[in-house]
């Protein structure tokens, strides 16, 4: 298929449009540094940060620590999601289970999970287990709440139709309830994804010897702010990509869903 030149220029125009806030941000940053509005010791210029970034990337320092952080975030997110979906489903299906779990969920929902990091460090020591436990707990709650909501709001007529078509009680979650809850589960997953980065990095700052969080903390302590900003920029980029990948997966898996379709249509010119 031929690519029409006007389609290319339209794509380029859209790309420029999307990048312009980022360009503006860097320009303001530069302006703030060079005008002396802020002390350049505390806020290094974009060029210095870029040089530090190049140094970190070429030295392999970033890749090594990024891998550690991503491993902790991913394992905690996966465990938290699986358990959260299961608990949310059980709450929706059993009044008794719900009665037991609701006070615990309600009590810990608004608690900042990072407050528990020192406690976890005491129990699990410095390293992977503490970080994964903190990420797990933070991801668990949004998954529980959103899965529960999705399952509970499954239209009764869908469940009844499935039963009249020979669906057993065992098959009901996998065939109907969790599928109907999928848009809500994805909403929970996006929130949990954000939490997984927050908790992995904040745990590393307090109780770890490796990871991006530790790196940021160390550069901050040493006053090498250009390197600190470079490390932050890396994790921002990775978190952004992770969120986009989740959104992409959501659009593919929720093609059947009205809001996914509407969202998709809106993006088209």
């Amino acid at each position: 298929m031929l690519i029409r030149p006007e389609a290319v220029s339209a794509g380029a125009a859209r790309l420029i449009g999307r990048m312009s806030p980022l360009v503006l941000f860097i320009a303001l940053w530069y302006g703030a540094c060079s005008s002396g509005l802020v002390n350049s010791e505390f806020l290094p210029t974009p060029t210095k940060v870029a040089a530090a970034l190049a140094d970190l990337v070429s030295g392999g320092e970033i890749a090594r620590n990024l891998f550690v952080t991503l491993f902790r975030a991913a394992v905690g997110l996966a465990l938290g999601s699986i358990c959260g979906i299961w608990i949310g489903l059980m709450m929706a299906r059993s009044e008794r289970f719900k009665a037991y779990v609701t006070p615990i969920v309600g009590g810990t929902y608004s608690l900042p999970k990072s407050a528990l990091i020192p406690l976890f460090a005491l129990w699990f020591g410095i390293g992977n287990v503490t970080a994964i436990a903190a990420v797990f707990l933070a991801c668990l709650l949004p998954m529980i709440v959103n899965t529960y909501h999705g399952v509970v709001t499954t239209p009764k007529v869908l469940v009844w139709s499935a039963q009249a078509l020979g669906t057993t009680d065992r098959e009901l979650p996998s065939q109907v309830l969790l599928r109907s809850a999928m848009p809500d589960i994805f909403t929970g997953l996006r929130i949990a994804l954000g939490f997984s980065f927050v908790l992995a990095i904040s745990t590393e700052m307090i109780a770890s010897t490796s990871g991006i969080g530790k790196l940021i903390f160390l550069y901050g302590e040493n006053g090498t702010y250009d390197y600190m900003f470079a490390a932050i920029a890396c994790i921002v980029a990775v978190a952004f990509v992770a969120d986009r990948v989740t959104l992409l997966g959501m659009h593919r898996l929720l093609r059947w869903h009205e809001s996914a379709a509407a969202d998709y249509e809106r993006r088209r010119p």
Partner: peptide, 8 residues
């Protein structure tokens, strides 16, 4: 209300 499975 039809009650079709919207994901199928």
């Amino acid at each position: 209300e039809y009650a079709l499975f919207p994901w199928l």
